[in-house]
Computed example of a mutant assay.
Amino acid sequence: MTDLRVSDFDFVLPEELIAQQPPAERGQSRMLTMDRISGQLHDSHFSDFPSLLREGDLLVLNDSHVIPARLYARRTLRREKEKPTGRIEVMLTEPMGDNRWHALVRPGRKIAIGERLVFPDPDGQIALEAEVLERGEFGDRLIEFAPVQDFFLILDRIGHVPLPPYIHREDQSTDHDRYQTVFSRERGSVAAPTAGLHFTPQMLERIAADGVEIARVTLHVGLGTFAPLRVERVDDVRLHRERYSISAETAEAVNRARREQRRIVAVGTTVVRTLEAAARRAGSALLAAHSAETNIFIAPGFEFQLAGALLTNFHLPQSSLLMLVSAFAGRENVLAAYRHAVESRYRFFSYGDCMFLA
């Protein structure tokens, strides 16, 4: 138990520091490095990242692939006198099997159970149809799509990149590439694991050539990563569940690194959550290949078992991700680093700059 409050993780961020576009070239971001014991800071660039790794490190990436989860629908009129409404935004958040998805529907006030939605393609032809099965809080709906031959192929054609709510623009053609890591391969995220956005294939080749081992996990990022924490006390925070998987190859790489006391470097908070959830699931045993769900919440006082260094972007005030970073490097150290980043005009959030904490 802690006496910390969610408001203890607040900081002042000028609106103009929230990156609305990716850098002109992938990998050209700035990077703030921190010694997580002393709190010492150093201004750097992401191009310097390979020089901060050690021969024998295990670098762990999240290879989840972002799907074009933002769709636009039309209502089908349920009553003869009901007036047509404008387009309905349907943000897919979690697959539930059997053509069913949880989704955030906006505006959702009139979208009741039994409502049928149609999703037109760019030519105006109906590409998908769905029925609302359940109604939840804050616009959440369980919807069921009518069966089609290749759902994801249609999604690629009519869907939009699910940019975070703090990016105040429509998605652009460039986002289909830039809001995706170069190593993504497993479909399922509705938000990018943003620490991985900085890497280029050339940098990964250089890192491997320098004797750093690279492994992959998969954690599908849900929209809950952006959801505000609706409690006051940190002890009362409860997170959404996210699906993850660890292959036999990665489990063995992690076990070997632990046995040989080599550093495990997590690329992003999603990798930290995956590794630490898996470690707790394994207990005193070695990691094994498995798939599961986790709602692990990491805040100050948490004891890390696997992550020895962390590359991460800058996170929202009063967010669970900022709490995770604070658990890793100390709340005062992290908030001091964020103040420095604001004063030094770093770019924040998904398309922004990054930090390396070791």
Rank of each mutant, 00 (worst) to 15 (best):
R5E: 04
V6Q: 09
V6R: 08
S7Y: 09
D10P: 00
F11G: 04
F11M: 07
P14D: 04
L17P: 12
A19Y: 10
Q20M: 01
Q21G: 01
L32G: 00
M34C: 02
D35G: 08
R36M: 13
D43K: 15
S44H: 04
S47T: 13
N62D: 02
N62T: 02
D63L: 07
S64D: 05
H65K: 15
A69P: 05
Y72D: 04
T76L: 15
R78F: 05
R79Q: 03
E80T: 09
E80F: 08
R87T: 13
V90E: 03
L92A: 05
M96G: 00
M96F: 06
H102R: 15
H102E: 14
G114L: 03
E115A: 15
L117H: 10
L117C: 07
P120A: 03
D121A: 14
P122M: 13
D123I: 01
L128K: 01
E131L: 11
E131Y: 05
L133I: 14
L142V: 10
F145V: 02
F145I: 06
V148L: 02
V148E: 01
F152K: 09
I154T: 06
R157M: 02
G159Q: 01
G159F: 03
V161Q: 05
P162F: 07
I167D: 00
I167P: 01
E170S: 09
S173F: 08
R178S: 12
Y179N: 00
Y179F: 13
Q180N: 13
V182M: 10
E186D: 09
A191P: 04
A192I: 02
L197W: 06
M203I: 08
R206L: 13
I207S: 12
I207V: 13
I214A: 03
T225N: 15
F226G: 09
V231K: 14
V234C: 14
H240N: 10
Y244R: 12
S245E: 02
T250R: 09
T250V: 07
A253Y: 11
R259D: 13
R259S: 15
E260F: 05
Q261R: 15
Q261E: 14
R263H: 09
I264T: 08
V267N: 07
G268C: 03
V271N: 00
L275R: 06
L275H: 00
E276I: 05
A282E: 00
G283T: 01
A288C: 09
H290L: 11
A292K: 05
A299I: 07
L306R: 04
T312W: 03
T312V: 08
L316P: 09
P317W: 08
Q318V: 09
S319W: 10
L321W: 06
M323A: 01
V325Q: 06
S326W: 05
A327Q: 10
F328H: 05
A329C: 12
A329V: 10
V334G: 11
R339N: 12
H340Y: 15
A341E: 02
E343T: 12
S344V: 03
R345H: 14
Y346A: 01
R347N: 00
S350G: 04
D353E: 10
C354N: 07
F356Y: 15
L357H: 08
